[in-house]
Design a protein around this nucleic acid. Structure first.
Lengths: 196, 196
DNA sequence: CCGTCCATGTAAACAGTTACATGATTCA
DNA sequence: TGAATCATGTAACTGTTTACATGGACGG
């Protein structure tokens, strides 16, 4: 996973390992974290695989830092990964879906759309599995003695509905503004707004 | 993580390692997977820690199978874990939130509620971070050249809204029926319904 | 008696994190 | 001149998956 994230970050320009971390932090950082302990070894690995290369030390700029550049093979490998179907059912954690979509701007439009259509299909399937489960568990007894167990199922259902809504939007490249127009609320929770 | 899941499964009765796998599969299996390669070593570990014990081989029942039972210390450790705050911001993958909530039926009502209130608060905070990010990125240029990057942010926002909705419901133990009454749709996706 | 499920486990690999160690550069 | 930040890396550990190896029990 991280290897592709790194390639993705290098896709738009040469970076040091240190920079890669920075770019991850204020890019996908919201939903994906990486430490130096994984980034540097990953860069070494990518170097061995010729997917990135070290820039020749140009100019007088401060030595001791290593600028990495993605190679043509690197670009190919990255685009290949991006073009591979996204997994719905993220029960293995590590939301690779978002990580992939994050980079879709570099993909040809038709491929990005195909990916999202396929992803939507998988999610619809998964939602139907959850709905079937719900029906099979649906009894007053369950709703009383197993309220919280059931609640996790309903959470899954809610999330899948929302995911589908998002898919339909994203795959047509519709603006998100209107989808979230109910927007500015959720501020009865002061704390992010430290004015006391 | 898995150690607590296993304790949770043993909370309502003695099981073999094999059974534990089964129970995980058709319990939290929807959002959490575990393999024998992790379950058996985990049981050994829990045994060393005296959090589970081996049942004396009763009756004539088929030998070669090992029935595990949770010990009082095991119960205590499990309830302690359950009572610890749930982490919002699941960027480390492994949705521990759902795993915890799944077991809340064994928790005293007031503690379960406190947990969910706290979880809701954290999620509201996180949503506000996302909304702040959105505002900082909000420009026509971004919405064009970085449509997909932005889309992942909107996905996060949508998911957090849905999560909050769910929290408000679950913490008051309201029925989910009404929340998802728009229900039975999503069947223009035939495939789970093999009638062709 | 054959296949399938029940049942237990191990070894190697994987994908990272945490904590540590080191030193150069920048700028106030 | 010293603190912050830039910059690179390693060693040990964690928690898991994958693939393998083994064998008993049970029903058709």
């Amino acid at each position: 996973m991280l290897n592709y994230i790194v390639l993705g970050m290098l896709f738009n320009g040469r970076l040091t390992g240190y920079d890669v971390k920075k770019w991850i932090e204020n890019g996908i950082g919201v939903f994906y974290k990486a430490s130096y302990g994984s980034i540097y070894p990953t860069l070494k690995l990518l170097l061995d695989q010729k997917l990135v290369s070290l820039c020749p030390e140009e100019e007088s700029s401060s030595r001791q830092k290593k600028l990495y550049e993605i190679t043509p093979q690197g670009r190919e490998a990255f685009l290949h990964w991006l073009s591979e179907p996204i997994e719905a059912d993220d029960s293995g954690g590590k939301q690779s879906h978002l990580a992939k979509v994050y980079f879709f701007d570099v993909l040809p439009e038709d491929i990005a759309e195909r990916q999202l259509v396929e992803y939507e299909r998988k999610n619809a399937l998964y939602l139907n599995r959850l709905l079937a489960l719900e029906r099979s568990f649906d009894s007053p007894a369950n709703h009383q003695q197993h309220y919280y167990k059931m609640s996790t199922l309903y959470y899954g259902i809610g999330i899948m509905r929302e995911t589908l809504r998002w898919c339909r939007h994203a795959r047509m490249k519709l603006p998100f503004r209107e989808l979230y127009e109910g927007g500015e609320s959720d501020d009865r929770n002061e704390e992010s707004n430290p004015s006391h």
